[in-house]
Write a protein that binds this DNA or RNA. Structure first.
Lengths: 221, 221
DNA sequence: AAATTATTTTAGGCAAATCTAAATTTTATT
DNA sequence: AATAAAATTTAGATTTGCCTAAAATAATTT
């Protein structure tokens, strides 16, 4: 039954899946940038993947995965995250050095392999970055969000929710230029007042209070 | 330093390596058959691999790996056999169902991965088929040959050497249609006279004496 | 030694996945 | 609404790895 796709095709499907986490329709340019290729190449591949019914695509209208495409994407994500878990848990890799290797391993096709690996690892639900691992039928836990207070030092993360909607909080966030999607790392933690020093992009680091940190939820990136 | 080769290139190098175990120089046809491709395609690839200095090749003269080619081949063999060991030992695959999956895994490029896997498996010296696993510098134990007497029941094996050259022995072997390369399995062992019943390919099983079995050396296949 | 057969190489093409440059369509701006 | 800018697609090439058919070379047989 389940067809056989090239590494390239799988990478396109995976990239579309990831971009669709934040926008409904994926643009040719966004895909080209993500895949480090040229827009013209993307167009070619989209036409091919459309004939394979993995995505909805009309010229100039962007692209969305079909149910079948999503299923394939979840299979690849499952493999990627299980292999990452294996590398960290069993082979003692650091969680920050597993991505590249998993990018290769995720294209190994044997379903039996991945299901046996899953069982061997005792069906982990989150990978070393905190991202949920789809089970063999494609279901997975909601995105794991952690409190900024609990984010380890020097771990890239992205603000994904804020624990209050008060005007005062929003004013403070605006002033600090923090919003949903802001990427940051914690550089220092001060035990005295539990304040933390964070760094956004390449800007200079600055300090935020315990009270503020406690209402910010992030996911590792 | 170590360059990056395509899956196809690696498969050619590996095939040449294996064929060179029994003959010094590998013919285009032999390679084509092993790789399930056409001789013309082989010629193309040989020309390419020659420019990469992985092999010695002159038109019509067959091919031999260079030291560099051999090193690459040993790296691939190492990966293949370590993954096979992993699949059987940790993931509970049967030893007869790991080959295909290992054919894919052997092309994962990370050296760090394979060295960590090696350590995790506690540096095994033989894979589940009894073939030796090269260490990280390419050294490996001699081919594991065992006496036919010691071959477990129902284990496919191949005759690889004969412990005597006597005419009488050769006559007997000819009559039983056993030669180097014959594939067989032991189906029964009789304690009374230590004779064993063996089966060659799909032919009916037949019995051979203890004396004969003792001079036949096989390797698992 | 000549002729036949088998092996190997060359020549010319094809499909996948990419690229650059040019044309087209959409979106944004005046 | 017209124009400028941005995004996207088309057209035409390139590379890799494979193919078939034909030519060249080597090996075998008579």
């Amino acid at each position: 039954m389940s067809a056989n796709f090239s590494v390239s095709e799988e990478n396109y499907i995976k990239a579309i899946y990831h971009i669709q986490q934040s926008v409904d329709t994926v643009s040719t340019n966004a895909l080209a940038e993500q895949l480090k290729t040229k827009p013209a190449s993307v167009t070619d591949m989209l036409k091919k993947l459309k004939t394979k019914k993995l995505l909805h695509y009309e010229p100039y209208q962007g692209v969305r995965l079909t149910a079948e495409g999503r299923k394939l994407a979840l299979g690849i994500v499952r493999k990627h995250r299980l292999w990452e878990f294996f590398l960290v848990e069993k082979l003692q890799f650091g969680w920050d050095e597993v991505h590249e290797v998993a990018e290769e391993l995720e294209h190994i096709s044997s379903k039996k392999l991945i299901d046996k690996l899953d069982a061997y690892l005792d069906f982990p639900r989150f990978d070393p970055h905190g991202d949920p691992i789809p089970d063999s039928s494609g279901r997975m836990a909601a995105q794991q969000q952690i409190n900024l207070i609990d984010l380890p030092l020097n771990t890239p993360a992205e603000v994904c929710s804020v624990g209050s909607q008060s005007a005062e909080l929003l004013e403070l966030l605006t002033h600090k230029q923090i919003s949903i999607g802001t990427r940051l790392e914690v550089k220092k933690q001060f035990g005295f007042d539990h304040s933390i020093e964070i760094r956004v992009k390449n800007q200079p680091a600055f300090t935020i209070s315990q009270q503020l940190a406690q209402v910010l939820f992030v996911k590792r990136v």
